[in-house]
Amino acid sequence: MPRAGRARAARRRAAAAALLALLAALGATAARGQAGGLDEDERRELGPAQGAPVSGALLDARAYEIGSLLRCPVCQGLSVADSPVDAAVSMQAKIRRLVAAGYSEEQILAYFEGSYGEFIRLSPKPEGFNLVVWILPVVAVLVGLGIVARRVRAVARPAAAGEDLEAYRRKVREAVEE
């Protein structure tokens, strides 16, 4: 093989090796991302990620959205996303890792609920006994509307009483004429 041909073949081999190395590095990064920095126990608890890995602005937005649904464990009425304390910052970092690895909102909320209990959710899940919290305000509004409607009808009655007044006047006129 001429010298120029050998040089071209060597360059092609080097390029192929570089490409393989790049693919291997990308694969390793993706695997790390998929694992989300989780250990065996956590992966068993969470199961496989239900979505695709997320990055960039979408990752920031989704992590904030999910963090705002969880209660900061050491604050009064603040969400994990809005709290500056260490405990909430660690939780928000964990949420971010899970979102980046493709875990869905419900998977992440269930994961934290599995450790902290349902209290960690800022809004109770609308199921079972919790339904009372969601239904009671609607029932209260309906009962209130019912009471208002009855009052309005009661106030409107004098209009009907006007007819009685006319009959009374008629009777008075008849009595005077007699």
Binding site: A87, S90, M91, S115
Partner: peptide
């Protein structure tokens, strides 16, 4: 590190 175990155990304080 990163409070991983504290989060896993659901530590409130």
């Amino acid at each position: 590190p990163d409070s991983r175990v504290a989060i896993r155990y659901g530590v409130y304080g």
